[in-house]
Design a protein around this nucleic acid. Structure first.
Lengths: 218, 218
DNA sequence: CGCCGACATCAAGATTCCGTGAAGATGCTT
DNA sequence: AAGCATCTTCACGGAATCTTGATGTCGGCG
């Protein structure tokens, strides 16, 4: 949120906090751009009139590198100002005074549009495809059925490709901290997983590091 | 564009035509939904007060199967009405009177946000046809009657073809967050749905992933 | 060469989870 | 008030999954 009047910022902060959002504030455009660069927010609410660079310029600068929803606030209902802000890249233009619930509703409508669903990764290795989003694994086009534990294990190993995962790390991640010492159960599930995903010939995808843990081929 | 006053429709048509858009008009919500189903427009501008079903209901019905940008027009600046419309799925809410250039600017801001490829309104899989707009399901030309919950379940699964939907995701989407743990009721409805839509032979359309959720065949 | 630790594999239980029929419960229509 | 459609809850057999114990294998080392 960017506004040169601390009073407005306080009010906005209360409104957003009660709707479950965390607010980061700035009083000038420069300050806002600096903060957004350091820690990009999910959305921006920008007052039109600011000392130094104005709200439209801030919007334009944000749009250079970000798709975040931008809502411009203003006391002026001038049509030219609205058109200019919206054409520049703002998603909405709200004139003061506004109701707090309306602002939240407009913010949420903009957020809904901006991020339908973050794309999930697709990991590939030696003919094996791991679709994290669909929770599915394929080899040569045909699906391989994995049980929940097997998939969790594979996902953990594949996300840390090339890195060595200790017995303890695998056990605490998949089974929980209370299983940290139970290497027996880990061995069984690794064996089951290997039977399903390993290629018939060639080097193994899951390598054993005796005494330490397992590693997914790089 | 949907409005019960022909005068407004004419004005809107001029505004949009001068901005380079082709406008299709309707005077009631039912008419609008019919036209949208036949030839889906790129966006919708809907008056809030309509004879019969109102603008918010039209928005909700469109959202059942479409992601098109929706702008709600209204003479009432009531905050409740705005919040309700925006929460239902509208992208913007413009109060009359409005400037023509502002409307076009808001429309273009909404279009800019819209996804390049619209989601399919008719899903087909193995002889099964799911018409999201009409909330109807057919197999081999004959209609299959589904209860509201069954249709919502099927729609959610079919929209995420191939992706695994967890119990929690299905329950929170269809029943609401408070039902997130009630897997029992989910099992019963999945069974009922399967009885109605599954082919007599061959692999199942809805596949069970024990301990995790369900998946609609890819 | 034999022992030992660590691992892989196999084969039962043990446990959890799922499918299904049927019996209330609810709400709407006639 | 009765009928109807729908949703929810319960009970139980069966299936899928997980765990556990036993056995076999391999390499290092005294």
């Amino acid at each position: 949120m960017v506004d040169d009047e601390p009073q407005i910022l306080r009010a906005l902060r209360v409104i957003l906090a009660s709707a479950g959002y965390e607010a980061v504030t700035a009083q000038t455009g420069e300050e806002a751009l600096d903060q957004a660069a350091v820690r990009p927010p999910a959305a921006a609410i920008i007052d039109l009139v600011l000392p130094g660079i104005d709200g439209v310029e801030v919007s334009r600068a944000l749009r250079e590198w970000s798709d975040m929803p931008i809502i411009v606030l203003s006391a002026v209902g001038d049509e030219d100002a609205k058109v200019r802000a919206l054409a520049t890249g703002a998603d909405d233009y709200v004139t003061k005074p506004f109701g707090p619930r309306e602002l939240v509703a407009r913010l949420e409508a903009a957020l809904r549009r901006a991020s339908p669903e973050p794309p999930e990764a697709l990991i590939q290795a030696d003919g094996l495809e791991i679709d994290l989003g669909a929770r599915a694994v394929h080899r040569d086009g045909s699906e391989i059925h994995l049980t929940p534990i097997e998939f969790d294990l594979l996902r953990l190993l594949a996300r840390n490709r090339g890195r060595l995962m200790t017995h303890r790390a695998l056990l605490t991640e998949v089974w929980g901290p209370s299983y940290a010492e139970d290497t027996q159960v880990l061995r069984v599930h690794i064996a089951n997983l290997r039977r399903k995903i390993e290629p018939d010939e060639g080097p193994r995808l899951i390598r054993t590091e005796p005494g330490v843990g397992y590693r997914f081929a790089a």
